[in-house]
């Protein structure tokens, strides 16, 4: 990593004798690191990456939740899941928290069980 004299701004390669002995131009012995370009934050790149992340977090048919509450008043619905599954899983915000309404789940499955039992009884 190159160094720069804080007084005259002359740059020296890392490990050179000038850094140890002081700047030959101005005699100053305080230097600062010069960060390589790739280490500097590229705002454009970050924005681009954030955009992709947001896209990934969008509700897809494969998402585990059937309804996502983004904010109160803002909802995303997974129609595919709602149409296929009887159970409803609620996602909060960007899918970092989930709620499974157990009462509804148990009610649904007990109804299914009742239906199956009734079918069995009628067959017998």
């Amino acid at each position: 990593m190159p160094h720069r004299c804080i007084k005259c701004h002359t740059t020296y390669e890392e490990g050179t004798a000038e850094i140890l002995n002081g700047c030959p131009k101005c005699g100053n012995n305080k230097f600062e690191y010069i960060k390589e370009e790739k280490d500097e934050p590229n705002i454009g790149k970050i924005i681009e990456e954030t955009h992709v992340t947001q896209q990934n977090r969008k509700m897809t048919p494969d998402s585990v939740e059937s309804v996502r509450i983004v904010t109160p008043g803002e909802y995303e619905l997974n129609l595919d899941s709602l149409l296929k599954k009887e159970d409803i899983i609620l996602g909060i915000r960007d899918g970092d928290r989930y709620i499974v309404p157990l009462t509804t789940v148990f009610e649904t499955h007990s109804k299914d069980k009742d239906k199956k039992e009734k079918k069995r009884e009628t067959k017998q």
Binding site: M59, G73, E74, Y75, E76, L77, N78, L79
Partner: peptide, 21 residues
């Protein structure tokens, strides 16, 4: 049937925030 329901869309029709939510 919709995949996204946002209260801001209703506010664009002149609805108050509480009503839109």
């Amino acid at each position: 049937l919709a995949t996204k329901i946002d209260f801001h869309d209703f506010m664009a029709f002149g609805m108050k925030e509480e009503e839109a939510k």
